[in-house]
Design a protein around this nucleic acid. Structure first.
Lengths: 269, 269
DNA sequence: CGGATAGTTGACAGGAGTCAAGGTATGTGG
DNA sequence: CCACATACCTTGACTCCTGTCAACTATCCG
């Protein structure tokens, strides 16, 4: 398996990259055109076809990546546990920031579809930072993005009934992929399962349920048309504002926090 | 509700703080003693009793925090969803990094027990960074920590049977709190529920199950003695290496990745 | 055309949510 | 110091969601 997965070539078309760096990379937002121009000469452009591995967990290549267009999944595997997809990244997102902390890649990054990305050597980041410390802000923004996506994954995609989580996943994919609502490219059932932490069978069954409800229509394998209802639905099921009668959705509630401080302090170390 | 939750006082005991900054804060690891000494003069020390709010989501106070001793929970609340605890932070951890990206606090941070923490104004970070850009590395390390904890939360605490997740949670608490194994202070059932994304009833039932198995013994309300078996158990149930017969633990498997690259490329945009 | 992989579906069992009834503990007021 | 009120935890009964196992179909590729 020679794995001719990802191939990178030095940039030729400067204007193209410059445009990319400015609009999608908040990373370089604070830099001067001169610095950006310098950087682009050291940034390679790459194409990763579906299922190709951009980098694998544990590797220590000295580079990070930004996505120009496409979708990438980050797979995490802990020793005694099933592996899970912990993030889906789309246009403008940054992969491999952990290399800046000196850690090996913590995930395996795989393209969900043909993806166009830029490979930025760590040395370029360090050089830019030396020249212009304002790069710090861009880096902070990128890290914060990662954490926020991770937290969304926990609070939205890993909590509650599978059907609702699936709906949220579809919305998320539409969001980050930029696919038109009538031709959304959803992950395979296996991937959906790894994203939601469920079995492929449950994924299949719940996809079928959405299809029966007319919220989703398969127009081709992997290609779906989603109803506006599905896309809008932030939450409000248009009924049951008070004393909800939802079939199953209690779980815990961590409101009632602020009030605590004054009273209650029975036992403590 | 005047909320006399957290009170901060300027440091008096320099040596104490310096020691703290060096051992627990990789943040300042790369700085010169002189810079650290300067920084400590602008860092306040605070005490948060159990259930007190360190900061609330949406606030924009210009400071971040590091924990000297104690445990803090980060609560996240998305509009139409139940709130979940997305992280538990212990000694040496950093809270509120998102302020460095210019974002309001994304979580509500609440002390799980009496907690001792340092309040670092953003201006101190910026000043230090100007003086010594090597601070960048410390910041990268802190961000990477946040992401790694978040990913663990997804892959370990939000996947699979509740009983196993509970065991992992106990191990995690022991880990970050530093409690002795025979006197571990576990979160309330409500908090356990918000951590694992389950109901308090399920939390209670599964805690009872662990107690029945002798893995956990309550020595006082909220205080437990955990058996060495529970603490060791990385995963291997000492049986079933091949064709496992576990009662329920299939889920999906995202192995078989590497091989993909060469073959398979049926449809793509 | 045929083999392989992935998706679909049914039957079944058990896990986990829901509802509701006590029980226990902390805190207040007499 | 005791009685009451308020939380929270605990438990049981019940439902149904979801994992498991297995058979079958659809797709893709050689």
């Amino acid at each position: 398996m020679p794995s001719p997965c990802v191939q990178f070539v030095r940039h030729r078309d400067d204007s193209d990259c410059r445009q990319c760096a400015m609009r999608s990379s908040a990373l370089f937002g604070d830099l001067r055109p001169l610095d950006i121009e310098w950087a682009t000469r050291h940034i390679d452009n790459g194409r990763a076809v579906r299922d190709s591995v951009i980098y694998a967990a544990g590797e220590t290549d000295d580079a990070l990546y930004t996505i120009r267009v496409g979708v990438v999944k980050l797979i995490m595997q802990f020793p005694g546990h099933e592996s899970r997809i912990v993030r889906l990244l789309g246009r403008g997102a940054t992969l491999g920031l952990e290399r800046l902390a000196g850690k090996p890649y913590t995930h395996t990054a795989v393209a969900l579809r043909t993806t166009n990305l830029c490979r930025i050597p760590l040395s370029v980041i360090h050089e830019l930072h030396t020249v212009n410390p304002r790069l710090l802000h861009g880096l902070m923004v990128k890290w914060e993005e990662q954490v926020l996506w991770a937290d969304r994954w926990i609070a939205i995609l890993s909590t509650g009934m599978i059907e609702r989580r699936l709906c949220d996943l579809v919305r998320l994919v539409v969001d980050i992929s930029g696919d038109p609502p009538d031709a959304v490219q959803l992950p395979s059932n296996g991937d959906i399962a790894a994203i939601l932490g469920i079995t492929p069978e449950s994924a299949s069954r719940n996809m079928a349920k959405l299809k029966r409800q007319g919220l989703l229509t398969r127009v081709a394998p992997w290609l779906y048309r989603c109803s506006p209802v599905l896309l809008a639905e932030t939450d409000a099921p248009d009924d049951a504002p008070p004393a909800a009668s939802a079939t199953q959705s209690k779980l815990s509630d961590v409101r009632r926090q602020r009030k605590a401080s004054t009273a209650s302090r029975r036992r403590d170390d």
